[in-house]
Design a protein around this nucleic acid. Sequence first.
DNA 1: GCCACAAGTCAACACGCATTGACATGGCGT
DNA 2: ACGCCATGTCAATGCGTGTTGACTTGTGGC
Lengths: 196, 196
Amino acid sequence: MSDLAEPAHLVAPRRRDAGATRAAILEAAKRAFAVTGYDRTSLRDIAALAGSDVALIPRYFGGKEGLFTEALKATIAPDRLRDWDRSRFSRDVAEMMAGAADIADPRTRTFQFLLQAATSPTTAPLLGRAVQERFLAPIRDWLGDAAGQERARVLAAIYIGFLVERLIRGAALEGAERTAFVERVTAVIDGVIGPG
Amino acid sequence: MSDLAEPAHLVAPRRRDAGATRAAILEAAKRAFAVTGYDRTSLRDIAALAGSDVALIPRYFGGKEGLFTEALKATIAPDRLRDWDRSRFSRDVAEMMAGAADIADPRTRTFQFLLQAATSPTTAPLLGRAVQERFLAPIRDWLGDAAGQERARVLAAIYIGFLVERLIRGAALEGAERTAFVERVTAVIDGVIGPG
DNA sequence: GCCACAAGTCAACACGCATTGACATGGCGT
DNA sequence: ACGCCATGTCAATGCGTGTTGACTTGTGGC
């Protein structure tokens, strides 16, 4: 592709260390795949971002697909569900959704990455299982509702929906529309996480 | 790409008619882009699917990107917001979301198509404007709430979220979880479209 | 201080792609 | 019936890609 807005020299000059360069490549891949998607991301871009060489990627990861699947696993990783304050949760989320999606935020990149994976028929099932284990189950636990799997589902769906909306909206909401939006989103989320 | 499961000879042999072939190419592009995404879809695939020739595409659409943007516009097109019965709307949607995403359903393909566009930084702004004009505005009109732009936003976001959830879930919900899910989704949507 | 092997570099390959321009041809107006 | 122009065909070109193999260079153990 082109610019990932990352001066190549931010990468600290490593001594010869296979493990370190492997890790650097993997990190660069997570970023690049999230921003540009699988196909538009070339191994040369990733190598440049990692301050490494293209030829190492087939060698260390067995090819582009190997690198992608490993990046996917690393992205979904047990990333602990923050111990959110339940009384502030809905409003915090609403405020966040009213803002602009920040490309610099790693969470935005992670989400784009997962969304990319969701649109590909081959990676979608893999993603589905990972989401079930590492996303839905924790949410259900957080909700403290052993029987209510569907509540986690609904909450996750709504959450994802607002993330997508924010993504395609681009800019932050302003003025009256913002306050109204925040109010309504808060109410919706409260309706789900509250006893019902 | 490869197989779009469409025997090339299903395309009725046209007489020489630029408009017809243009339309055929556009239709094929909408299908192909929805299934395979922008990058994995080659102009050769589209041409084959349309029963046409590759070289006509740069000629008629000014290149691959031109074809894509036109296909995007055509996909978002004012696609009649069905005159939904307001009293049945939420439950109908909830039932739909509880089912499995059907790849054969053109609407599923369309949605995947749009989601693809949402994750690409280049196509996301374009999509944003299109959604604003052709999705949010009609919804607001349907809600009959001239001042409440944010309500359309929230409804659209939730709708999209459930579509994504259904996509990555893969299978249909069953039994008790299904009924609970439907109930809860119905309530959420009613909470938004109802007076609030 | 040297040596062997891991780690990194570089050039080249084969492939698929979009795009271009020159060529053939069907069909409509006269 | 015929000629002209829009319409469709085809081969060729240039570019970017992933991957490979041979080469160089750094570095830890002796």
